[in-house]
Design a protein around this nucleic acid. Structure first.
Lengths: 254, 254
DNA sequence: GATGTCGTGTTGTTACTACAATTATAGTCT
DNA sequence: AGACTATAATTGTAGTAACAACACGACATC
């Protein structure tokens, strides 16, 4: 088992460096290469797989960027102690967020209609004030407990077909990817800690004035166009924000 | 002025690719290459600076990683529309945070002593419960307005000399870099939205029960060792959290 | 004991080459 | 006009080569 090496397939349409990258990721994820340990040197890998050092470095460089590996000149390449990656992936909407916390996400749709864009919505979606916008108001639950109240706005011109879909239990992002071939590339959030207004408090089942997170989030698609704008009230007693901040995003080469 | 090209210095100890990277960053930051526009092709840059395409690609690859450029096969390389980078740098402690918001950070030191580590502190700093820990309690202000109450804990064994320094107006991180040659590499935060307790409310000049952000932050140094653990209460009416979440951290090569 | 030197192993930098894959455009054919 | 084709331009992948920079241990020297 040990000297039997899965040779990489140079005839495959998948690039060699990518195959090697997958191999290394597998070694890390299965624990064959434990956190903190040194991986084989570039020369060793080059001989082992019979591919050039250029290709080895490309695979390792990618993984260094993703913070799964760390290179130290003169010493070697090591498996990162802490996988920051997992924490960063937090940001993929409510459904994924809940699943990551081990909760089952569900939603009650309170409102689903076309409205005129308010100034805030228009600005976020880069449309004109008064233009048509899709409004989707949902009470969001984790394991059937009320967690948040979210109102999503989208550009009606772009996503009018969207009104016909059923998304009671489906992730908005998963649906958008399937039906419209768009997906979020990044999102910008503004988060406040406020007293919950009366109307929202009632829907969330808390007292007026109880502390809540108030999110304004604009998600951008792969073309850097606004995808959706969301305002959300998250119960302070049931929702905690976890963040990992990377101070100095190091480059591929250093 | 236009055909006069700053030649890169191959005799400099600074790598060529890094010099080129700096040059490109300068072009972007000064607006010579505007957002969305195509930069010269790799071949053009190679001829212009008389360096190999390998080196060009390394510089561009770094900048693609930092999301300042985007490469599209068959089309070219373009300046990113939105500089996410600026938002990511948010995370460097209160002083830098305030400065980034255009406010002048100051602090009142309320307490600065050695205490026995509580379970939470011990766990965060990876020391034993009851071990000595440095406690630094500060009322933090922006433009002389009270913003937050922060309590920093550090390992006394590692940073005992720290007790003698004066940091009324200096950033903790800047001081640590100068005196101890350590700096934060990343931090993990847990953020809650809670009702402010009575004691903290009084110090912050708000009413008991007003909403505040409650932060627990552990910062790790360049060796992945815990550097400091901070608990902070941030006034909800004066502090807003801005986040940019990158959904799919793409690799250097794609 | 402290310091310096040297050899080995490792990653870092740079150059050269060749071909593949993709995109856009110009041109041709129907 | 529309569909297809060829070509050019551009980035992507892969190889080879050489030397630099750095870390570290072994050993010698002071």
């Amino acid at each position: 088992m040990s000297e039997r090496i899965e040779k990489l397939d140079s005839k495959s349409p998948i690039p060699l460096y990518y195959q090697l990258k997958s191999y290394i990721e597998e070694q890390i994820e299965t624990g064959v290469w434990e956190a903190g340990t040194q991986i084989p040197s570039e020369l060793e890998l080059s001989e082992q797989f019979n591919i050039s050092r250029t290709t080895i470095r490309q695979a390792i460089g990618d993984l260094v960027n993703e913070r799964k590996l760390e290179r130290i000149q003169g010493r070697g390449t090591f498996v990162s102690e802490i996988s920051i990656e997992k924490q960063i992936e937090r940001v993929s909407g409510f459904s994924q967020d809940m699943r990551m916390r081990g909760l089952v996400p569900t939603s009650d749709i309170l409102n689903f209609e076309v409205v005129k864009a308010s100034p805030a919505v228009a600005k976020a979606l880069k449309i004109n004030e008064g233009d048509d916008a899709i409004l989707l108001k949902r009470l969001r639950k984790g394991n059937d407990k009320r967690i948040a109240l979210e109102v999503v706005y989208m550009d009606y011109k772009k996503y009018k077909d969207f009104l016909s879909v059923n998304l009671a239990n489906e992730s908005l992002y998963e649906m958008l990817a399937k039906k419209f071939a768009v997906w979020p590339k990044y999102s910008q959030q503004v988060i406040e800690s406020i007293k919950c207004p009366a109307e929202e408090a009632e829907l969330l089942g808390i007292q007026k004035g109880d502390p809540v997170f108030y999110f304004h989030t604009t998600a951008f698609d792969q073309y850097d166009e606004p995808l959706e704008y969301t305002e959300g009230y998250y119960r302070g007693d049931r929702y905690i924000l976890h963040l990992t901040n990377v101070i100095n995003p190091s480059s591929q080469s250093k």
